[in-house]
Write a protein that binds this DNA or RNA. Structure first.
Lengths: 353, 353
DNA sequence: TTGTACGCGTTATCAA
DNA sequence: TTGATAACGCGTACAA
């Protein structure tokens, strides 16, 4: 191994200058050929530049381009949790849409800490991204909401775009799905199947969209003439739902016909808990969730849930992130119930109160 | 809305210069206070700079820093698929470790296309990341392997670090888990439970690690005195495994005691297919996978699999990505079988041939 | 059409 | 310790 090629950090990256020199043209000409848009370069030069770039293995220095242009080709995505199948699917869709139009995605995770969100936005702003997309948090009573708004405003004022997904609490471009309507329809369909005595599992963490789902479900029940659904708010996780169900009294459980949880994750936790108590699903009690995560395909019985068109959400988000509107708009993507084996029609005997 | 504050892109971002001017110091001094390391600045100046930065809402322009310093605080992660629970978990762990030491993560997805991998590396190189981590591809006979190596070498020569996860095919720093040993041990344990007539589902796509898992399992069986396991390579997806199982003849299936698939995803697909054929799991046939994805907790029966310590893999990868070694090393993280309800001990009657 | 000269925001070098 | 000044790589008026 020669002294020149060995080790790390020995060589300087190939720059546009190197390419220009090798091609025997000026640096701006090389720039025009390789990265510019107004391609008024003589074919002979063009060829030489392209060949030189190929030979040298030139790649544009993105930070340098970003600085010179004042804007980058990066989109910053702030997300609660990437290991959660729902958010993973959301991130995947957003990346797909972004890459389709030549944008990179830089991901940051809040791990559901509201204060971390503010820090992240501040940091991300420094990346000079084309847009910042905040997906899937949104607390009912956020501690530092005004600071977050200020920070995002400041970012917007310097030409950046802000898009919120699944949280309609802030005055920015918002893409949301219809939480209320989705669970309302679900409640109506389940009521039509005969379900009346329901336990609703909301989120212990005060999240707006989850609250909407609870309200929608209750509304749907009431419209169907079903009242008195019990609402509880266990810790917002699979384990939280499971533990909650395990802690119920036998009398409580015996009286139930259905458990609706505001996410599939919770629903699966509840399902696990109910089974641990010796209950059969769906014979003894029905279970329904919300999100329609892919994972559900491997669960028996197939879980009734509310489907959300994540690809539509992502597409809309990327569109909003790359189009400069004057006024923030609110887009709502539909969500509709999907009835599966976990909530079969109740026998007539059970429907009668 | 005033002409100054309105719309998008009106205001210029706050720069270090603005802060310095407001604090009445020179720009380098402001730099030393806010971003520098050798903090030899008079306390009085220090205070004034910090306050000015706070008032103005200054955030360092990362591209500018990257250019000036010649290196960024970004790690580029190239991953096959982010919606896959296994890769999502891997990405989550890597991000966690990276953020713990103040590094951003930029994610790019290959969608399992080998040629896209090369393009991505070329692009990512332009981001001037601190390191490039390639996770989870690695073909048996890659079409453009040499080009990829050249590209990564070039990146390394300019001071970047390259770390490969779960693919020991390229001459770079590698973190892998013990595919062969993991499935070998699994095979031995299953053989000890009485399983003999096995169907092994490999990957239709020629991936190295998957091949290792097949080889390891076969080796484990042979060591246990079990020969003649059938190996097949359906399309590398849940659907592929399901369809393959559905296409088997009844005679084939009746003869089987176990299906081992090289990933949990495939195993779950196979399980679904077997059930569609009216087989009971595990009474009629056992099923085992590899990866121990979180999703399995909601599957009944609980799936026997091989557990991989992803957090250890991620930690090691980040460590390698931030430590400059002279020679590329190979780290192997253990993988060990976890026996669950999907492969109960076979009754004595079945063990007898 | 091509090349010269400058600016982008930051860090690093060197005098003072 | 602090402050001028020169990079870093690229895009872009402007002049040729």
């Amino acid at each position: 191994m020669s002294a020149l090629s060995g080790g790390s950090g020995s060589r300087r990256p190939v720059t546009l200058d190197d390419v220009a020199r090798q091609a025997g043209v000026s640096q701006p000409t090389a720039s025009r050929v390789l990265n510019g848009s107004s391609r008024k370069v003589a074919e002979a030069y063009r060829e030489r530049v392209l060949q030189a770039a190929r030979e040298l293995g030139y790649t544009p220095n993105l930070p340098a381009q970003a600085m010179a242009r004042g804007t980058s080709r990066t989109i910053a995505l702030v997300i609660s949790l990437i290991s959660d199948p729902y958010f993973a699917a959301m991130a995947a869709e957003i990346m797909k849409q972004a890459e389709a139009i030549g944008l990179h995605v830089s991901i940051a995770v809040t791990e559901r800490q509201a204060d971390r969100e503010l820090d992240l936005v501040r940091e991300l702003r420094g990346q000079q991204p084309r847009a910042i997309i905040l997906a899937g948090t949104g607390y009912v009573d956020p501690p530092s909401e005004q600071q977050l708004i200020d920070e995002l405003r400041r970012y917007e004022e310097t030409g950046g775009r802000v898009v919120l997904i699944s949280r309609s609490d802030l005055p920015f471009e918002t893409v949301d799905f219809d939480n209320h309507e989705g669970s309302r329809q679900l409640a109506r369909e389940l009521a039509a199947l005969g379900y009346e005595r329901c336990l609703i599992l909301g989120s212990g963490t005060p999240l707006l969209s989850m609250q909407r789902r609870v309200e929608g479900f209750v509304a749907g029940l009431v419209e169907s003439g079903v009242n008195g659904a019990r609402v509880h708010h266990p810790e917002f996780s699979w384990t939280g739902a499971r533990d909650f169900v395990l802690a119920l009294t036998d009398a409580d459980v015996r009286d139930l016909q259905l458990v609706f949880a505001v996410t599939d994750d919770l629903a699966l936790g509840a399902l696990a808990g109910l089974r641990e108590r010796g209950l059969r699903i769906p014979e003894d009690i029905g279970v329904a969730g919300f999100d329609d995560i892919t994972t559900l395909r491997d669960v028996v019985p197939q879980l009734t849930t509310v489907h959300v068109a994540l690809n539509a959400v992502a597409q809309e988000a990327i569109y909003r992130a790359t189009t400069s509107d004057s006024e923030p708009t609110r887009t709502t993507v539909p969500a509709y119930p999907v009835l599966r084996a976990s909530t079969p029609p109740l026998q007539a005997s059970c429907v009668i109160e």
